[in-house]
Design a protein around this nucleic acid. Structure first.
Length: 411
RNA sequence: CGGGGUAUGGCCCAGUCCGGUUAAGGCGCCUGCUUUGGGAGCAGGAGACCGCAAGUUCGAAUCUUGCUACCCCGACCA
């Protein structure tokens, strides 16, 4: 894409009412737009990043057999009454409204109820199980205080996967697969190194749930990390009994601030009880379906990546999620650059060409701010030296590369 | 929901305490000329119901009251 066509522009100053690093940079670079506190829209560059993140998640979910669907954000009171979660005493972050005829409705903050109710239409026999389904859905949470930019919003996209199994053993197998898939997702998102499988409180049906916590200053949780073993314990369950149970030595644990990037949760029969979601087994007995839920917020992941990788000059995107792989910059040499731009595009390389008539310094500053992994500069100086200058966003200096070798260099 | 802070062109801000010509400056934007390897220079120009609503006053960005929004700390985060 030619940058002159991009309707967003970079800003030199962040709005003063944004304090969090992720929101400051994402707004300055034109990735997101703040509609109100805790409510952010995604602009072309930001939406490209979001789509890349969602695609990675989608591939890993499909890989473990997840079937993508899309439930509704708008929910009726009736469904939620079955688990008592319509009650404002029990759930205090509802956005509730009503239809013209007075029917009470709400904007869902999660979808266990909706999907369990839905599955009553499709699950009847042991032959129907196991399976899992997921969606990317806009969730609404009427938080009393939004904070940390895009990391804790009142409206946000969430990937939520739900599993349906016949037995605990069958559930445990899938749970393990989901856990592995999450590890792969965070690796692919470029934050695997700092993301720890974390033991947290489990609820009624299992001793622990698992969170994926990324060590990060903007986080809201405190975890105790065993870096050797690569696992952590959430402060909420941090006690001698738990440490003994997990065979962790207090002396090997480091206290860290962390952001919850994802969580996986065994639900047991909590929801199948409430909705009477049963199947008939081989012995003609009615059995409750065993469920699990697995959440991961792509926008929060985007915020975490920003917080973790950005430097003083701007955003730094891992290749897998970058809005464009290459930021092409010309200093004069329009025709030659047009040629290279076409070659890159023909080779399938996603490239943002800063074709604007601006001084070099301004283009460099924008390229740093936007944070594409590779910067390619075409100038009379580079051409005389034998090609174009190729520089990684994370490197200080670039190198001259022959135009014919450029594509293989950035593969 | 408790406590603290802020609100002035698209963005950063001065001015408010102590009321008084036309609300200053920077970024960005428009025009022209010059400029081109780290946010260019000169000249000219456009853009503001000073968060909203009342009130005090001859006169309000400035004082008073109410409201709203935003940020921070805490509580909450099923």
């Amino acid at each position: 894409m030619k940058q002159s066509q991009l309707f967003t522009k970079t800003q030199k100053f962040a709005p003063k009412d944004e304090v969090s690093k992720n929101a400051q940079l994402l707004i300055r670079a034109g990735f997101v737009h703040k509609e109100m506190a805790g409510v952010y829209g995604f602009l072309p560059l930001g939406w490209r990043v979001m789509n890349n993140i969602m695609q990675i998640i989608r591939e890993e979910m499909n890989d473990i057999g997840g079937q993508e669907l899309k439930l509704t954000a708008l929910q009726s009171k009736e469904v939620w009454s079955k688990t008592n979660r319509w009650s404002d005493e029990i759930v205090d972050n509802w956005f509730k409204s009503e239809l013209k005829n007075g029917t009470k409705v709400g904007l869902a903050f999660t979808h266990e109820e909706a999907i369990t109710g839905l599955m009553k239409s499709f699950v009847a026999s042991y032959k129907d199980l196991p399976f899992s389904a997921y969606q990317f859905q806009t969730k609404f949470r009427n938080e009393s205080r939004a904070k940390s930019g895009i990391m804790r919003g009142r409206e946000f996209i969430m990937k939520d996967l739900y599993s349906f199994s016949r037995t605990q053993e069958e559930h445990d197998i899938f749970y393990g697969k989901a856990k592995d898939a999450y590890v792969r997702i965070f690796d692919r998102l470029g934050i695997g190194e700092e993301t720890y499988l974390t033991f947290a409180s489990g609820g009624t049906f299992s001793k622990y749930s698992h969170e994926f916590q990324t060590v990060c200053d903007a986080g809201e949780d405190i975890i105790y990390v065993d870096k050797e073993k690569g696992i952590a314990v959430n402060e909420e369950v941090y006690n001698d009994e738990v440490l003994a149970d997990l065979e962790l030595d207090k002396n090997n644990l480091v206290k860290e601030k962390a952001a919850e990037a994802g969580n996986i949760f065994s639900l047991g029969t909590k929801f199948s009880d409430a909705f009477d979601l049963t199947y008939r087994d081989e012995n003609e007995q009615e059995q409750k379906v065993i469920m699990g839920s697995y959440g991961l917020g792509p926008a929060r992941a985007m915020g975490i990546i920003t917080e973790l990788l950005a430097d003083e000059n701007g955003l730094v995107w891992p290749e897998n999620v970058a809005p464009f792989k290459v930021h092409l910059i010309n200093i004069g040499e329009d025709e030659k650059t047009e040629e290279i731009y076409s070659q890159l595009q023909d080779a399938g390389v996603e490239v943002l060409w800063d074709d604007r008539d601006m001084r070099p310094g301004a283009k460099f500053a924008d390229a740093d701010l936007i944070g594409c992994p590779y910067r390619v500069v075409v100038s009379s100086r580079s051409l005389e030296a034998g090609g174009v200058e190729l520089k990684k966003r994370t490197d200080k200096d670039g190198q001259i590369v022959n135009v014919d070798k450029l594509i293989e260099q950035i593969k």
